[in-house]
């Protein structure tokens, strides 16, 4: 564990609490992409298969269960409790391509051609693009509630912070996981435009608005 990894994980946790807070306080899931949320459930279920056979390190296990549980809970909230507020018409990014493309990447790049390793690789590639339906929805609406942008920022910062964590581990421990690093870099690049608008507008106290 190093400071970048810890901050990354805390940022990931924060993103989920911000999302739940947004849904609760505005009593609405407007502006939140159901498709991205569904992809995250798929990401966590395929990545954390090792929950079935261990080893169960306390920190990792609690976090894994939390990420699976909270992502399923958000889907439940969106599907049932706050269904009418869901932007179904605009939230129509074709996730089939993301899932299919990630699966092909997982078949090509994996540590071993076994079910769990292919699923682990699949989860990394899918996570790297899972925010696209959310960013697409943002693009379609052209603006977002500030709290929603805080959520997306915290979620993007988590993987961005894993990059210095990997560099640190490579230097200090001689350990490097190329699939995770490469997918993590792609994921951070996917967020680049969003980060730019977030830093130049939201942080300055302005509303998140995209040029028409």
């Amino acid at each position: 564990m190093n400071i970048f990894r810890l901050l990354g994980d805390l940022s990931h946790l924060a993103s989920i609490f911000i999302l739940l807070h947004k849904i609760r306080t505005t009593k609405s899931c407007a502006g939140i992409s159901f498709r991205s949320q569904a992809l995250y459930v798929l990401v966590y279920l395929t990545r954390y298969l090792d929950l079935l056979w261990g080893p169960w390190l306390l920190y990792n296990t609690v976090m894994k269960l939390f990420f699976i549980g909270s992502s399923v809970y958000v889907l439940y909230l969106m599907k049932f409790d706050y269904k009418p507020s869901h932007d179904m018409g605009l939230d129509n990014f074709k996730v089939e391509y993301l899932i299919g493309g990630s699966f092909v990447m997982a078949l090509l790049f994996n540590l071993a051609f076994t079910f769990d390793e292919v699923m682990w690789s699949f989860s990394l590639w899918l996570e790297s693009v899972a925010i696209l339906p959310q960013l697409f929805l943002l693009q379609r609406t052209g603006e977002a509630e500030t709290i929603t942008t805080h959520y997306i920022f915290a979620l993007g910062a988590y993987r961005a912070l894993y990059i210095p964590n990997w560099l640190y581990r490579w230097v200090m421990e001689g350990r490097v996981e190329f699939i995770a690093v490469f997918a993590g870099i792609i994921q951070t690049i996917v967020y680049a435009d969003f980060f730019y608008v977030y830093f130049t507008k939201v942080i300055q106290g302005q509303k998140f608005e995209l040029p028409a």
């Binding site: 990894r5 990931h12 090792d50 894994k64 540590l111 071993a112 390793e117």
Partner: peptide, 10 residues
């Protein structure tokens, strides 16, 4: 690479 202890990151 993967160690016998499994994946240690989230």
């Amino acid at each position: 690479g993967k160690e016998k202890g499994g994946k240690d990151e989230l």
